[in-house]
């Protein structure tokens, strides 16, 4: 289960190469829209990071969260709040500080939330998410419902020497690309580890895990915090990209969209939700280009996918790429 079938692995690798090389051929392929598309793809990769992080909770550990955007938004807000107004923040300070705060908040929310399961878990995470939304929406911290601007990108320097200039769109593209691939690999490594195996088992049969002598709550909490922190990283990147944060980043719509990416892409596969992010966002772009009432075809598209692809896009790929049924090794 941990290894992908060869054809699927090759197809995914091809997509990754296409993505990596996009800045090279994009201008030639879409001369008029290149800059726009590059920005768009950067944004999609950020959402893909968030979707993969949610998959750790939903698809792997069986914790369906409808409040994941709270951590995405919090990561973004931390950049806005911690950045000095008119000069560049030091990334070596803001990024760790932002992630640490997200992790700490996630530890508290997670510890309270994992006391519940099933639909109650969905709802309590929704409740905490909404509390986060209204916290930034109603308070005067960071601009209230208007949101706040980040005028200068954080500086990435060591001993005064600039390592990369994030204001450069190309540099930022590759930074996000690297973190996107990095997040995927990190999650894969985690899943193969003793910790990951326990979390995966919890998603399949939690009471049995307990019967075997593990305390599921510890593992669920750690998984929750890891997922939230990765989402926080995505939010941080999103805020840096657009130079703007607003409460909508934390809204349940944002959480719902991430959940749709996970389900649409195929839960529990990690690569599926990333794929889901691309397909959903590209579909949206396509529909937006067709009609101002793009939500209508978008909704129909989502409905069609559920009815036709029970295991999401990843399920379809895995089915297509599966080896011919393994011959049953019969006993003597």
């Amino acid at each position: 289960m941990s290894r992908l079938p060869r054809p699927v692995a090759i197809a995914l690798l091809a997509l990754v190469v296409l993505l990596a090389a996009y800045p090279l051929y994009g201008a030639w392929l879409f001369p008029a829209k290149h800059a726009f598309l590059m920005q768009k793809i950067t944004g999609i990769m950020i959402l893909a990071i968030m979707a993969m992080s949610l998959d750790l909770l939903v698809g792997i550990a069986g914790m369906v969260s409808l409040g994941h955007a709270a951590f995405f938004g919090l990561g973004g807000y931390m950049l806005a709040i911690l950045s000095p107004e008119y000069e560049a923040a030091n990334i070596w300070i803001v990024l760790p500080a932002a992630l640490a705060i997200v992790a700490a908040v996630a530890a508290i929310i997670g510890a309270l939330s994992i006391r519940t399961t099933g639909i109650s878990f969905i709802m309590i995470t929704l409740a905490f998410g909404q509390m986060g939304f209204y916290f930034f929406n109603d308070s005067r911290l960071a601009g209230g419902s208007d949101g706040a601007y980040i005028y200068v990108m954080p500086a990435v320097e060591i001993a005064g020497i600039s390592l990369m200039n994030l204001e450069n769109k190309l540099v930022f593209y590759y930074l996000v690309f690297g973190l996107f691939i990095g997040a995927y690999l990190l999650l894969k490594v985690l899943l193969a580890s003793p910790f990951g195996r326990v979390v995966q088992a919890i998603g399949v049969n939690e009471s049995r895990v307990k019967g075997l002598g593990f305390n599921p709550d510890h593992y669920k909490l750690v998984a929750f915090v890891i997922g939230a922190t990765i989402a926080g990283l995505a939010g941080f990147l999103g805020a840096a990209q657009y130079g703007f944060v607003n409460p909508a980043m934390l809204s349940w719509h944002q959480s719902g969209t991430a959940l749709v990416m996970v389900i649409l892409g195929g839960m529990g596969t990690i690569f599926g939700p990333a794929l889901g992010a691309f397909v959903l966002e590209l579909a949206r772009m396509g529909f937006e280009g067709m009609t101002e009432h793009w939500l209508l075809p978008m909704g129909l598209f989502v409905i069609a996918v559920v009815l036709l692809l029970p295991k999401g896009l990843a399920g379809l790929l895995l089915q297509l790429g599966a080896k011919p049924a393994p011959e049953p090794e019969d006993e003597a």
């Binding site: 580890s193 003793p194 195996r197 075997l212 002598g213 593990f214 510890h218 593992y219």
Partner: peptide, 24 residues
């Protein structure tokens, strides 16, 4: 994997994140 997980439960802790479980 069922049995491996059961055996893994006797580690003092399974909070080990970066080495594959199969290497134990």
């Amino acid at each position: 994997e069922n049995c491996r997980l059961a055996a893994q439960s006797r580690l003092s802790s399974s909070m080990r994140f970066f080495r594959p479980a199969r290497a134990l």
